[in-house]
Design a protein around this nucleic acid. Sequence first.
DNA 1: GACTTGGAGGTACC
DNA 2: ACTGGTACCTCCAAGTC
Length: 815
Amino acid sequence: MIEIKFIPIDYDYFDFEGRNYARIIGRDDKGKRICIIDSVQPFLYAILKPGVNEKKIKELQEKIGKLSIKLPSRTTKVEKTLLEDKNFLGKQVKAIKIFITNYKDAHPIADLLDYEEIEARREYDLSFITKYIIERKLIPLSWYKISGELLTQELGIQNLDVDLAIKVEKIEKIPDLPFKPKILAFDIEADEFEIGKGEILMISLCSDNFKKVLTWKHCTKQDFVECFKNEEEMLEKFLDYVKKISPDILVGYFSDGFDLPYLRARAEKLGIKLALGLDNSQPTFARGRIPSGKIFGIIHIDLFRFIETVYSQYLQSETLGLNEVALELLGESKKEFDHKHSSKMEKEEWKEYFEYNLQDSLLTWKLAEKFLPDMLEFPQIIQEPLFDITRDSMSQLVESYIIHHLQEYNEVAEKRPLHDEIGERMGREKYTGAFVFQPQAALYENLAIFDFTSMYSSVIVTYNLSKTTFLEKKEPGSLEVDLEGEKVYFSKKPGFFPLLLKGIIELRKKYKQELKENPNPITKARSNAFKLIANAAYGYQGFFGARYYCVEAAASTAALARKSILDIIEKIKKQGYNVIYSDTDSIAFLLGNKTKTQTLDFLKKLNSQLPGIMELELEDFFKRGLWVTKRTGEFGAKKKYALITEQGKVKIRGFETVRRDWCQLARDLQNQVLQKILGEGNEKQALLILKKTIKDLKDRTINKEDILIRTQLKKLLSEYKAITPHVIAAQKMKELGMPIDIGMLVSFFIAEVRSEKEKKLVREKVKLPEEKGEYNIDYYLNHQILPAVENIFEVFNVNIKELISGIKQKKLDGF
DNA sequence: GACTTGGAGGTACC
DNA sequence: ACTGGTACCTCCAAGTC
């Protein structure tokens, strides 16, 4: 028997004599690499119909106990059954817990449970690792004292590159110890984008005090460059370095979709085994929307995927490419490098190429270090391994959090929806969502904005809305929600979903406070993780793929949120304020003759009247706020406004300034105009800026980057019904042999053409950035610049178009 | 051929 | 297919006169 302190990092399992064993790689407190082998007995539940008598249950247990499945490789039997009292979707039920030999046969065993007394079969669709973590409470990246038997060359650990292997007997939670995983970043360069088509020219590696570029193409005298005879030798050395550095995390950027599959494809072609795993196995690629490259014992992370789901909504970056993200988060860019085919590269260019390649790894490594607190925190909160956490969608994260907390409510897990069920759910009609107030276009002064904290989550908790509390029909004391005529009912008895969410909101509050008092990366990561889960819980209930899907709950959440905000709007009006705007959970109103103190007191009063955990807070006071009309019609536009605080902080929403599908010229101009108007309270200075921009445009002094329009390609070229300018741009790229991918941003500009009469459509004037041609002055004036500022000036009764043509007639300079 | 209108398409807000 | 609905705006496609 030996005893160690252990932190689990990577999980997988294997079969031995027909049974499943968890195999977990981690470290001990001395930094040694440890493998532990453990087992739990797989099981599923048969939930019984109400009122089945004891005798019947006994008989049923006996029948179930005899079930088995014979496969060529193994036989799975029901090994034991237990009768348990459980909760399931708001009901107390009797359930038979059915232990089986091999978890992989849980589904076929469930299919055999075709007995009249059984109402439902559940928990046959949870992964072995998930079940293992729940059963043994061995939470990823958390510390434990493990005792067990030392293993040498036995089951599941043959040729495993670890310092110690233990067959677990006892697991005990201990307080957290310091832990810093070793991170190795990598990046490859190739001439061809298509996976495996070209040669890998170079591979860069970056870790603590370690920077290398491996290449076989060209030998330079840069100290970080290591040269090899051929691609094979370079790949071998890459494997060597990974072994030697022995990282816990191997991180890349887009590496699930590019670097790792490319490495594997090239290795295969060259007859090399890409033995990255601790057991010398090659990476495997799990099927999915995007394949996930898994390396045994080392966590491969594609940082892009984690950032995309968890952080993109908080980033300013318009693309999530390494360059923009690194610039925003690290203040560093990629190296500038003019890509061309390697065969046409000069000596000096190779040097730059190597630096470029190294910089990519360096940025990836720095980003990974930056996100390390989050990467350590999320797996502990969600209770799934880091590998999965960094690839899960938002709904999966929410669902995993739920699944791992069901025990606290003695709840049996609901099943994943089946194919037909998903189809049905997707086909449903949309329900009514949020309320958006019809604003009046104007420049307002002295505003306050109130908003509900985590509004939808608060509504779910306050009114107990969920699949588990949804009632088929009205019951005494139940809550009735009117969904525009159709009535639905919810139990008042707290269900586990709202209770769980209540816990999340409380923790979110606690960690937000903790962050305020003690701001550091850990408290920030924790606070952010809970915020994300809380925010996604509402969408989860309306999501077709959710185990706890419930449109009635989702629609009721939106309906009650609407009711709440309309109620508050009325109260604010009644108090004598002028409400000017509201969207979903926020309300903007004019202070008028009231003071800030009065307004804050009023906020307190409003809060005291709110039900449950609903809470209204002050977002801020604002000096000025601008709302404009829609392009068509005289009404004020919703979801478009600009605000300035007394400290001069500007908040712009919805305007072209913040839209990436407008050219920089129009966006910059609009931004400056908004800033000036908000700062000064009138349009005079702003007009001068407009004048200058028009002059520059007509003088053709505008830079090309500023007139590029960037639009995302959302589907295959052939699937487009309407051939829009960006589709033409993509077609041109394709003809030039450039790679076309779904999701890519297509850049183009609108050029002058010989005959405007023959080429009337915008798409006929599209040119790629590298194509020769002058920008189309008329287009940029009338389709970019003017539309961007027209209705802003209209607020001041200044008609730009008249002004321009009027001035023209008077032959004044500038316009 | 000029003009209108609906909808496809993309992106933002919360 | 991988959280929800609401809203704006451009440009194409197809219809009307």
